[in-house]
């Protein structure tokens, strides 16, 4: 894989690998990100992934862009050859359709199949979290199978409840907090994806998400456990 480093202002460098949404490219960038953080370079502030970029920000009073690029080159080259950084796969229970997924029927019509088949397709694969953005806990994930990749609504809804799971083209994701949005909402998770008391989400960029269909009764049980603070998000071993 080829990459290039582009200065972004005087305190950041973007490592760019092509211009397509490709899980292999993104996972390689996540691996580079881990390596850069693990190197604890004193001038480096942090790394922020995008789809095909990893932006490294640094303190411009401690080093110039040129110096930072020189430090990054061997780290990137080593991370290009290294095994992919370890990541988690998280199980996210979702109650599809009904009041939780007002757009499920539309997506089924779009895919020319039944609602059950849409659910089967949506739960059929693990989704990579390319990066987090827009809101805390908002994960940009992809890609859904082509048949259900329905474009977003022409008119965004004014409020989508927290936990809603939706599709926007090849992207899928969940709303950590209630917010306006134009995604096709097909279900809702009972998990609390954003908690102001513990704002850090349990999933991170580079992790995988697997959706698991649950009944309305199971949804209610999990929601109660979440409210009681006894529910632990489940990882896949």
């Amino acid at each position: 894989m080829d990459y290039r480093m582009i200065p972004v202002g005087d305190q950041a460098v973007a490592i760019e690998m092509g211009t397509t949404i490709d899980p292999a490219v993104n996972q390689r960038l996540q691996t580079i990100g881990q390596a850069v953080l693990a190197a604890h370079l004193p001038m480096v502030k942090t790394v922020i992934p995008g789809y095909a970029t990893l932006t490294v920000t640094f303190n411009g009073q401690m080093a110039t862009t040129e110096m930072v690029m020189k430090k990054l080159t061997p780290l990137i080259d080593a991370a290009m050859q290294a095994k992919l950084a370890p990541h988690q796969t998280w199980l996210i229970p979702v109650c599809y359709g009904g009041e939780f997924g007002p757009d499920l029927a539309d997506v089924a019509a779009f895919a020319k199949c039944s609602a059950e088949e849409v659910i089967a397709k949506h739960t059929s694969r693990d989704y990579l979290i390319y990066f987090m953005g827009f809101l805390p806990g908002f994960a940009y994930m992809g890609s859904v199978v082509d048949e259900i990749a329905m474009p977003r609504l022409a008119e965004p809804r004014l409020e989508i409840p927290a936990g809603s799971v939706g599709i926007a083209g090849a992207q899928t994701g969940f709303y950590p907090v209630a917010s306006p949005g134009g995604w096709r909402i097909i279900g809702q998770t009972p998990l609390k994806l954003y908690d102001p008391a513990h704002p850090q989400s349990f999933y991170h960029a580079g992790d995988l998400i697997r959706f698991q269909a649950v009944s309305a009764a199971e949804f209610a049980t999990i929601k109660q456990a979440v409210a009681a603070g006894t529910y632990q998000p489940k990882g896949v071993a």
Partner: peptide
């Protein structure tokens, strides 16, 4: 443009 990190001052 594919979504990418923003910087202060962009």
């Amino acid at each position: 443009l594919l979504s990418t990190a923003t910087v202060r001052g962009a």
